[in-house]
């Protein structure tokens, strides 16, 4: 059964869309990630215009993260104050990200930017994850125990504008969380991802937040930042396809439930290696498309769409 998507202006098989949403939902449930970094490329590979894929995915991630954020909130797993600082940074980042997005769309380079951003971030994060999990698997095999290193004072502690975060029991400069939030905001706007894959490591390794509030706070921030990205894309380029977002969302919720059950049966290291492998696969496909000479060197698009009216 075909369904016509009013903003993407093309007709797609609804079962294909449901399968995509369900599949990505399954993986996101299994690995505990948002799935935007898989869904956006998948939409692009299946013929949705990159600009529409990114903006629609931002909208879908809002839906995907809000129930998680609410669940963590009830359990007290959200550092509200830290969340607000991250959101403040995130909204600034989203604003600039959306501006860059709109500008590049007008000069016909938005597809390139999306691909390059994916290759850099997926390659970087996937590579690090892969190395890290291989190392820890090897360590396990040799029976080594990781020595916990006492946190040392770094240049981060020397930054001004210190704030107290009671929930996280921290007293740090607001500049760090603001800039992390801003980076995530830019990524949300230009890549259609929640940015959890950057934010969670950044919170743990850069901010040294206690792990029990990391996931909740990051979901809390992602909900608001992707909402801001949705809003800005709607205003600037009219590229948010609500019909597409809702179809993907429904399937993703179901898939995620199954994924959580399967994920619980696998070991943490195995999961991380699998996830890293998948991230690298998407990255390589994107890189491949950039480097290999395309069959068709020319592309045709409507003038008014490109100008973003």
């Amino acid at each position: 059964m075909q369904i016509y998507l009013p903003i993407a202006e093309l007709s797609m098989n609804i079962f294909v869309l449901l399968a995509m949403g369900g599949g990505v939902g399954f993986l996101s449930g299994m690995f505990g990630v948002g799935g935007g970094f898989l869904m956006t490329p998948l939409l692009i590979f299946s013929g949705v215009a990159p600009a529409i894929a990114v903006a629609t995915e931002a909208n879908q991630i809002t839906a995907a993260s809000v129930s998680g954020a609410a669940a963590h909130w009830r359990r007290g797993g959200v550092d509200f104050k830290m969340g607000m600082v991250l959101i403040a940074g995130g909204i600034i980042g989203t604003y600039f990200g959306a501006m860059i997005f709109t500008y590049l769309r007008s000069i016909g380079q938005v597809d390139l930017m999306i691909s390059v951003a994916y290759v850099i971030f997926l390659g970087g994060v996937g590579g690090l994850m892969f190395i890290e999990s291989v190392r820890s698997m090897l360590r396990d095999r040799r029976g080594e125990v990781v020595k916990s290193v006492r946190r040392q004072r770094t240049w981060i502690d020397a930054l001004p504008f210190k704030m107290r975060f009671r929930k996280s029991k921290m007293y740090i400069s607001a500049i760090m969380p603001l800039s992390i939030g801003a980076l995530i905001g830019v990524l949300a706007a230009i890549m259609g991802v929640g940015g959890g894959f950057i934010m969670v490591p950044a919170m743990i390794y850069l901010l040294h937040m206690p792990t029990n509030v990391v996931i909740g706070t990051s979901l809390f921030q992602i909900t608001f930042v992707t909402a801001a990205a949705t809003y800005l894309h709607s205003i600037n380029t009219q590229t948010v396809d609500v019909v597409l977002a809702v179809i993907l969302l429904v399937a993703a919720v179901v898939g995620a439930q199954v994924g959580v059950v399967v994920g619980a049966k696998l070991k943490g290291e195995q999961l991380r290696i699998l996830l890293a492998g998948m991230v690298l696969l998407v990255c390589m496909k994107m890189a491949f498309d950039l480097v290999v000479e395309p069959d068709e060197l020319f592309s045709v698009s409507a003038v008014n769409a490109a100008e973003g009216h």
């Binding site: 909208n59 809002t62 839906a63 995907a64 993260s65 809000v66 809003y231 609500v242 969302l249 429904v250």
Partner: peptide, 15 residues
Amino acid sequence: GIMAILVALFAGLFS
């Protein structure tokens, strides 16, 4: 934009 956000929030919380 606001409608899209509300739809997403509602759908997410409901599901």
